[in-house]
Design a protein around this nucleic acid. Structure first.
Lengths: 343, 343
DNA sequence: TTGAAAGCGCTACCAG
DNA sequence: CTGGTAGCGCTTTCAA
């Protein structure tokens, strides 16, 4: 069923039917009612492509996920983010498209996406420090919003980010307040902006108590379970091992927990661990480990916020750049946490 | 830059330019070369919507993710699956769209997706036992492929699935061979087909050694970390606790590990655990816990397989239903595993 | 308040 | 081998 046959069935012109369906005011209420009823009855849906061709808009937003041959990893919270964004977009009539772009042909793909008119705007994931995609998108002139920021970027750009630096400063400070001085940081890849900022926050907090950073307590890589495991074992085998560990992800935290256990130590007694975590409910009672809440629901919410901001950028082409900071929650268990066992 | 202006620039008709670009044989090589060069020079890309309108195909495949208000969870491997599918689709010129559909308005959304002509086919995620979406899609007549199967479905349908029943039968048998008789199953929601099949496999293996299933050792829910934790603690507090636990997910496995630790027990000595897991590299040496490999790379591969199968269904409308079974690997650590401590 | 008609950018049929 | 032209299904002037 298309507009034409619907109009014929109603004995009206395509114009009138189109207007009635799209809420134009110059249609009589009686006609509109009649048209809407018929549309429902015939299960009519306007063809997206035809509509897009006529209006010049695709009503599609792409989510661009960087990928390289070395770092195939997809963040496990990706699904939650997409879920939140998809729902928000759907409320405004937008569809969501996923594009995975390999590092080498970024330029090509972005320009193509725009030239093809396939999307009205994009969400940029996983920005690196001085991310080249930002000036590229500015150049192309396609609406976009960055999930995260890009240190060193001079050009203005729109972003929504979690305050990673502050989060890690607070988490580290939480540990130094308890007396910890040997604190390990199992960080993500530090060319990624979020990891870069986390490290900054960590270093600031150490500096505040006059502790110099120790390279042996720092590491940076793809945040896998095995990575968390290996680095934790390595650190715990040091002559002067850490009394606390800061983990950058849920996944590496699994490895950290196993490593601690395999060393015959008890987490929360021998080694404090602060990590991003999800389901807090079972940790609230008598648990002495503070956790960052990068919960599924907060990630979903972030997805929705980005989607909404992007839509406003699409609607108003010369909207001022959006800068939206989200604060992560630091949840601390009931007990105060352990004193460091070794100093 | 559109076809018209490109053609004008070349002093050719749109027809010829279109043919040259789309590889039609009736164009002279010289012309084709000239056209292709110009296309590159002007950075010309055909408009997706116009092309779609003209050809009647959208070159878009949707991935439909079920969601309900109760079960907001998105599987953490979702991102990997999407990554694999997206790349495979891109090789064939398809884009990937994500649609999250809430339970109540499934019918509406699927019909709309089809009527709008927004997509050429869909990938169905998370089928339940007797999933109503399958007959619906058959009825609508849209090409689709199910990731998983649907027990009780009489109508023929295309699917790609992991052999969950066999995997869990083998895993359980692995434990019974070691002498375990009290084996807990921390399962996903059993209206989901994969969880249903896993339970079947588990029960079959128990039956083979004459053990009746004990409701106290079975549970079924959304596979969160907290769920794994709570159920493990509950089971370990039984008068006759399990000596081994089978976990259905990476996430719940985290909770299981913590619970075992919190009970003052050692995993792999006091309690054996078999779980789906990701990064095996650090578990291979001296590890006494067998694991299923639902690795990131195998999930990516599955995504690619589904995408390719769907494309062949789209290309050949009356292709026979596809039935493609994937076997999960069972990796066993170097040591043979513990004997049960309590029987 | 309604309708006719001209596109949107492309493909594909039919002539030449 | 090349070109004219009629759509694909919709929106959007411009007239009535």
């Amino acid at each position: 069923m298309n507009l034409k046959t619907l109009a014929e069935n109603l004995g009206l012109s395509q114009t009138t039917v189109s207007r009635a369906l799209n809420g134009y005011p110059e249609v009589s209420e009686a006609t509109r009612q009649r048209v809407q009823d018929a549309a429902v009855r015939f299960n009519y849906r306007p063809n997206s492509r035809a509509k897009g061709l006529a209006t010049g808009r695709s009503m599609v937003v792409a989510q661009i996920v960087p990928g390289s041959s070395e770092h195939e990893m997809v963040n496990p919270i990706f699904g939650d983010f997409v879920g939140g964004a998809t729902e928000a977009l759907a409320r405004f009539g937008y569809d969501m498209m996923i594009t995975r772009v390999l590092e080498d042909d970024q330029d090509k793909i972005y320009r193509e996406l725009h030239a093809r008119g396939a999307v009205d705007g994009v969400i940029l994931q996983g920005p690196s420090v001085e991310d080249a995609r930002i000036p590229l998108l500015n150049d192309i002139g396609m609406p976009y919003i960055v999930h995260g920021r890009s240190t060193g970027m001079t050009a203005p750009y729109s972003w929504v980010d979690v305050n990673n630096r502050r989060s890690f400063r607070r988490a580290t400070q939480f540990l130094t307040d308890l007396g910890h001085r040997r604190i390990g940081l199992i960080n993500g890849l530090e060319y990624m902006d979020f990891a870069h900022r986390r490290r900054q926050g960590y270093c600031e907090a150490l500096e505040a108590v006059g502790v110099a950073e120790d390279p042996a307590l720092l590491c940076s890589a793809d945040m896998t379970e095995g990575y968390g495991y290996r680095e934790t074992r390595r650190m715990l085998a040091l002559d002067n091992p850490p009394t606390a560990i800061l983990s950058a992800s849920m996944l590496s935290a699994i490895g950290i927990r196993r490593a601690i256990q395999d060393c015959g130590l008890v987490m929360g007694r021998d080694v404090s661990v602060i990590t991003h975590d999800d389901d807090l409910s079972y940790l609230r009672n008598g648990e002495d480990i503070p956790i960052f809440t990068a919960t599924r629901s907060s990630v979903r919410a972030a997805g929705a916020i980005l989607a909404e901001q992007l839509i406003s950028l699409i609607a108003e082409p010369d909207h001022a750049p959006i800068q939206h900071m989200l604060e992560a929650e630091l949840v601390v268990g009931a007990s105060t946490g352990p004193a460091p066992r070794r100093t």
